[in-house]
Design a binder for these strands. Structure first.
Lengths: 211, 211
DNA sequence: GGCCACACTAAGCGCTCGCTCACCTTCGGC
DNA sequence: GCCGAAGGTGAGCGAGCGCTTAGTGTGGCC
């Protein structure tokens, strides 16, 4: 709510479902640390320190450092998927739904940049099993966007030659927001969301008003 | 040349200017390792091993592990900038030059994915001085693309409301290719380059034939 | 009040990291 | 045929890593 704190502290509300309290504090601390330094450059001592605890406390709530990343990644991907599912199943034309999906997806990547960074860019630090689980979620994410684009093509609203390639490009554009978005920068997450929704409608050749 | 080897081995020719031979082999080994595991997860023993040398040999040619990343990053950014400069200064309309710039930029990110990954995603592992130097190169990259878009807007070929935001989006789209492109996948770098050139022309509202 | 389950800490184990150092080989110049 | 520089190796240092273990405080329940 308050725009004063927009770091992971401000994003903490997204982790409200995680209990008990100490486990959540550790998770939020891990998100901050992983986003700043990357998974491999983050030490368990750093995570515990940010949460105001001793290094050993981490291992009461999590078996390994990797389990922290795994949990963060799964919760984050589930949230991202949920955002797209809600947007995709709303009433409206494919044009309206694609614009809504892109703008809310981008808003999440920009506003929750700290979390999104970890979710989108630390995937390869996971072990094979955890990575496979997350990749399944990503295929679902992909499917939601492709579904809207396919509908728009069928209805004649969109003009797209390569549906898979365009889907990939749209998602890629949205995801990369987490890499470059700067909280102190000139744009708000909402502004980027609107700009990107417009750009994506142009990419798919939407007929309606694009601005 | 040969399409048989498209890993960093095949990209090795791009490092031809680096001498002596042993220093180049170490650099290529470092590119491969950084791209696979990330900078922090790569050990100097791994780099030296890939180059067929003992761990100590690394320190004859480079002062630290970070110097390897710094050199890779600078050479890579200079190459990326050169690609855009050549495309930008060619003869032709803004539409033609933007399409050429995007397709060759994307081709580089897809074909030289191993290198591009390190160049685009390991920036934050550099120390402050090295990072500042690289960021200056990135601003030049940004300026090249923005220049073409501004010209297209002035000539009336492009319909762009937010030039800075659109420039950011175009570059973001191209750069993210390095994250998802798979050498064994269904698309060649050339195909992705053509698709993306088309998508970018749509994004800027280019008037001419977009396919 | 006595007791136990739980959350947490201080200390530190075994290991691997980036990096160094003493020594060895190879080879062109005279 | 000897020499010094250049380029390499094997062994290992100090530091910091992920993680463990023995012990401490604390709050709820009979």
């Amino acid at each position: 709510m308050s725009t004063a704190e927009e770091t992971a502290g401000g994003e903490a509300q997204a982790w409200g479902e995680v209990t008990p309290d100490a486990a959540r504090r550790l998770l939020v601390a891990a998100v901050e640390a992983f986003a700043e330094r990357g998974y491999h450059a983050t030490t368990t001592r750093d995570i515990a320190g940010r949460a105001g605890m001793s290094p050993a406390a981490l291992y009461i709530h999590y078996k390994t450092k990797e389990e922290l990343l795994h949990r963060i990644s799964r919760i984050g991907h589930e949230k991202a998927l949920e955002i797209l599912q809600v947007a995709s199943r709303r009433e409206g034309t494919p044009t309206e739904r694609l614009a809504g999906a892109v703008s809310s997806f981008v808003r999440w990547h920009a506003g929750g940049r700290t979390t999104a960074r970890v979710v989108q860019y630390e995937l390869e630090s996971l072990g094979p099993d955890a990575r496979a689980e997350i990749l399944a979620l990503r295929r679902e994410v992909d499917g939601e966007v492709r579904g809207i684009i396919e509908e728009g093509v069928r209805s004649g609203e969109f003009d797209v030659v390569d549906v898979h390639g365009t889907t990939l490009a749209v998602l890629s554009l949205c995801i990369d927001v987490a890499r470059w978005f700067n909280v102190g920068g000139p744009r708000t997450p909402e502004e980027v969301g609107e700009l990107y929704a417009d750009l994506v409608l142009r990419m798919v050749g939407a007929q309606g008003p694009t601005a």
